[in-house]
Amino acid sequence: MHESPSDDAPLLVSRRAVDIFVALVLLIIALVIGTESVSLGHGWMEGVGPAAGFFPFGISVLLGGASLINLINAVRNRDAESQEDFVTLTGLSRIMFVLLPLAAYIAATQFIGIYVASAIFIAGFMIAFGHNGILKSLLVGTAVPLVLFFMFERWFLVPLPKGPLEALLGY
């Protein structure tokens, strides 16, 4: 389904490994939820009917069972597709180029407010990845948060996180 990663193919991690990993994580989630459900009570409770843990318990059994089968399938799967790279180095670095700035953006929101952070994020992204002109990037970077500001704060009166700049302007 995925084009074969011929030109940029240093093997990082195989599909099989990731498949096993995800099945394992889901299995652990099932165990945690299952244990917690039992402590909540998973049977009939007087005056309450089926207890709070009744439904989650059933579901965690289902999730656990399904994950176990998925895990076994993934471990036993030795065909060519499973040996393929899950992600190529180029692909991974591209993803990281988006993921890390996005995480930094969310973190920054708490300090400088969502509008300033958005401006920096949009302009930065445009310059770094799109090779857009600096002026154009700055223009789009300022315009979008401004539009959003008026839309959310003034129009729909939905307060978004604001930082020192907005406080200075009286918000």
Binding site: I106, I114, F121, G130, V144, L160
Partner: peptide, 20 residues
Amino acid sequence: VPFSIIAPIILVVCAIGAYT
């Protein structure tokens, strides 16, 4: 619209959407 412009805007709008 070029991806390098629309992608960050989508991401910002998504973040605001999740926040609200």
